[in-house]
């Protein structure tokens, strides 16, 4: 990708970020990565009633090389995990991942030997979408949230700094089991 190598510095970078984010969010190409029940809802989202074309992303790409969004739609088995990772690696940067449905997000009700307990063990996830399966409206909401995230994404030195901050925050974060108080 040529953009990353030709970045300006200073305040112009922020303007470039905004322009690049706007362009990127307006033409996201999802890869067809349907696994289970959620894939059917993903296809429904692309079909007539919910019409994903309104957000410029009804064209699901068959080849991961032409896609920049992977919607992991369904339960990821131990056998599928290496395949999923390979597909992710084949996608060009910048790329995003939506973990659609509770199985992909945390293993869900299938807490057993066969299912990977959360696709974030394999690939970094940008949006976790709950539901079993999530309604098409929920998927669209997740996609719009991802659009916001893409719009605000950083480039160049800013991106490095943002990554560092995120890393620091993650290191300081309290593990779930040590949290106290109400369950919310």
């Amino acid at each position: 990708m040529g953009l990353e190598e030709k970045l300006p510095s200073g305040f112009v970078l922020t303007t470039v970020e905004q322009a690049a984010g706007w362009v990127r969010k307006s033409s996201v190409f999802p890869a067809t990565f349907g696994l289970a029940c959620c894939a059917i809802e993903m296809m429904t989202t692309g079909a007539g009633r919910y019409d994903l074309a309104r957000f410029g992303m009804e064209v699901f790409r068959g080849s991961p090389r032409q896609a920049d969004l992977m919607i992991v739609a369904g339960r990821v088995s131990q056998k599928m995990a290496p395949v999923l990772r390979q597909v992710y690696d084949q996608m060009p940067n910048p790329k995003w991942v939506i973990s659609m449905g509770v199985c992909a997000s945390s293993g869900g009700m299938f807490n057993n030997y066969a299912i990977v307990q959360g696709v974030d063990h394999i690939v970094p996830v940008d949006i976790y979408l709950p539901g079993c399966p999530p309604r098409p409206e929920m998927l669209m909401d997740a996609i719009l949230k991802l659009h916001q995230k893409i719009q605000g994404s950083k480039l160049g030195v800013n991106a490095e700094e943002a990554a560092r901050e995120a890393e620091d925050a993650a290191l300081k974060a309290l593990p779930l089991i040590e949290m106290k108080g109400l369950l919310r």
Binding site: G107, N111, N112, Y113, A114, Q117, L176, I177, E178, M179, K180, G181, L182, L183, R184
Partner: peptide, 19 residues
């Protein structure tokens, strides 16, 4: 004799063993 193989589920300050 093969375990189900689930993991314990963690919540805020609590844990539920695998099924």
């Amino acid at each position: 004799d093969y375990p189900l193989g689930g993991i314990a589920i963690e919540y805020k300050g609590a844990q539920i063993p695998a099924p």
